[in-house]
């Protein structure tokens, strides 16, 4: 098999507040979900863009959807600390302006943990070790590589300013869906319809 360098981009998700809560807890569940983009550059490097969700899991909860892919972990409910009093602001503004995270640099004496991470991607399972410093993710290292990959590099870690996650078919995790305008007819089969029905 051709030796290929796999480069990965990890989009990590949590609020600054949420992250500190998460990292302050003993148990973590890190789930890297399906790659959101795969691209092969001229030099044969596969660029795999991943997205991850980090959630604290005091007790793993069973998956709600049995149909969920077997390689994926049941996603426990995120326990980000709810804001005590959300203040409706005069100017609607996307919230949670966390400071942009600098490029990952090894930091001093950081508590680290190895997440049991499985990527359900086309290149097989990858286990990832995550090092933290305070509330910041400082380094992500692959400790188990997919077949056919001789090197793996995970970079571009940033805690988003907006809280975001990438995942699939997790309607239980969302309240509303934004997408290109649907017709009345298409609505019936939409995720939004499912959400509306479930909350009535």
């Amino acid at each position: 098999m051709q030796r290929r360098l796999v480069r990965m981009t990890l989009a990590l998700v949590a609020t600054a507040a949420g992250l500190s809560v998460l990292l302050g807890l003993k148990t973590h569940e890190i789930t890297l979900v399906a790659p959101v983009g795969v691209q092969e550059s001229d030099d044969g490097v596969l660029h795999v863009q991943l997205a991850a969700s980090v959630v604290a899991s005091p007790k793993p909860t069973p998956a709600k959807t049995p149909a969920a892919s077997a390689s994926k972990k049941p996603k426990p409910k995120a326990t980000a600390k709810p804001k005590a009093t959300p203040k409706p602001k005069a100017t609607p503004k996307p919230t949670a302006k966390a400071t942009p995270t600098p490029t990952p640099k090894p930091s001093v004496a950081t508590p680290g943990f190895t997440g049991p991470v499985v990527i359900a991607g086309p290149y097989g399972p990858v286990q990832v070790q995550i090092l933290t410093s305070g509330t910041k993710i400082t380094q992500v290292r692959a400790v188990k590589l997919p077949d056919g990959a001789d090197d793996i590099e995970i970079n571009d870690i940033a805690v988003p300013k907006l809280i975001q996650q990438t995942l699939d078919r997790q309607s239980a995790q969302i309240d509303v869906v934004s997408g290109a305008t649907y017709t009345s007819l298409a609505y019936i089969k939409s995720l939004q319809a499912a959400i509306d029905l479930s909350r009535r």
């Binding site: 709810p82 996307p94 995790q173 934004s178």
Partner: peptide, 29 residues
Amino acid sequence: NGQPWRVGIADPADATTIIAIVNGYDFNV
């Protein structure tokens, strides 16, 4: 209960799939 709204961005190729989530208060998408 003070929790942020969780907005899923639908995949244009499959409207039942979400490609990103934006959480927050008082925002438009």
